[in-house]
Structure formats: C-alpha cells, structure tokens
Computed example of a mutant assay.
Amino acid sequence: MDAVRNKFLTAQNRETFWQIVRFGIAGGLATICYAAVYSPLAAFKITSEQVANIAGYLVAMLSGYVLHSKWSFRGHNASARSSAPKFFAVSLVSYAVNTFWVWLFTDDAMLAGPWWWPLIPIVLVTPLVTFALNRLWVFA
C-alpha cells in the first residue's frame, strides 16, 4: 500500500512541478505583455504610472486567462463558466498587489523611484500569489 501511495504522490508531485513550469512560462508571457504596455506609457510619461498599470493589467489579464486556462492548468477540468469569474477575481487581487507596488515605488509620497522599480516585485512576488490562488481556487 505504501508503494502505491508513494508512486501516486510522486506522480502528483511531478504534475504539480510541470504545472508550475507551465504557469511560469505562461505567466512570464503575460508579464511581458504587461511590461510591454506599462513600460512605454510610464517611461515616456504618456500617462501616469497608475494609468499605465491599469492598461498593462487589462492586457495581461486577457492574455493570462487564455494561456492559463488552455495550458497552465490543463487537465483540471474546470469549466470556463466556473473558472472565468474566479480568474477575474484573482486577477483583481493581482491588480491590487501590482497597484500597491506601483504606489510604493513610484509615488512621490513614498519611495519616489523611477518607473521601472515596481517591475521587480511585479515579476518576482505577484506571480507567487496568483499561482497559489489559481491552483487552489480557480482551476481546482
């Protein structure tokens, strides 16, 4: 019995590992989409960093949903009807987290750093939060 359980856990751990890899790639692509929209808007002062954040968020949310639902969390059998509203809720959490980073690192009242400082935690911290929420709630 223990051998069967260990083999199952190993297979489950392998699937989780590859799911994290797929999430990282898909999330990386969505983050690149975010940065491709946010960066020129903020760097060239076309708009404020917060408005650039909203524009980047919208592009990343749409591309992220397609990538994650079709590839990252494939095989979870979550229907689009049940996963789309949950994914949108998680994306709002990621938007709030990213808004915090933009506020913290670029707002004159806080650190007043350059436009690119928020990209560091946006790339390194926010994906960890969204992976956990997507895996445990959206595509569970």
Rank of each mutant, 00 (worst) to 15 (best):
L124A: 14
N13T: 11
S72W: 04
K45A: 14
L58D: 00
L124R: 14
S94D: 05
F8R: 13
V97D: 00
V129T: 08
R135M: 01
L67P: 05
A52F: 07
T130L: 01
A140T: 08
L41K: 04
L62S: 12
L111W: 11
S79K: 06
V90Y: 00
Y65K: 01
S79G: 15
G27I: 04
R5Y: 03
L29C: 06
S48L: 01
S91R: 11
V59T: 15
Q12V: 11
N53V: 07
T47S: 12
V102M: 02
I122H: 10
P40W: 06
G24S: 03
A132N: 02
A36Y: 03
Y57C: 08
L119C: 07
E49T: 03
S39I: 10
S91D: 01
M61T: 08
P127T: 06
W117V: 04
A112R: 15
M1L: 05
T31V: 03
A3R: 14
H76Y: 05
A3K: 11
V93W: 10
T106E: 07
V90R: 04
L111V: 10
A140I: 13
L29D: 00
T130G: 00
T130Q: 08
F73T: 11
K7G: 04
V66E: 01
Y38R: 01
S94V: 07
L62C: 13
W117D: 01
F73S: 05
F131A: 01
L92H: 10
M61C: 12
T126F: 10
V66M: 08
I46V: 13
P40L: 04
S48E: 13
K86C: 00
W71K: 05
I25D: 05
A43D: 07
V129W: 06
L128H: 13
V37F: 11
K86Q: 13
I54M: 14
A52T: 07
K86D: 01
I122R: 11
G113S: 11
I120W: 13
I122Q: 10
F17W: 13
W101T: 00
A3I: 09
T99Y: 12
V4M: 15
I32E: 08
A109P: 06
I120A: 13
A35N: 14
A36V: 15
L136H: 00
L119F: 13
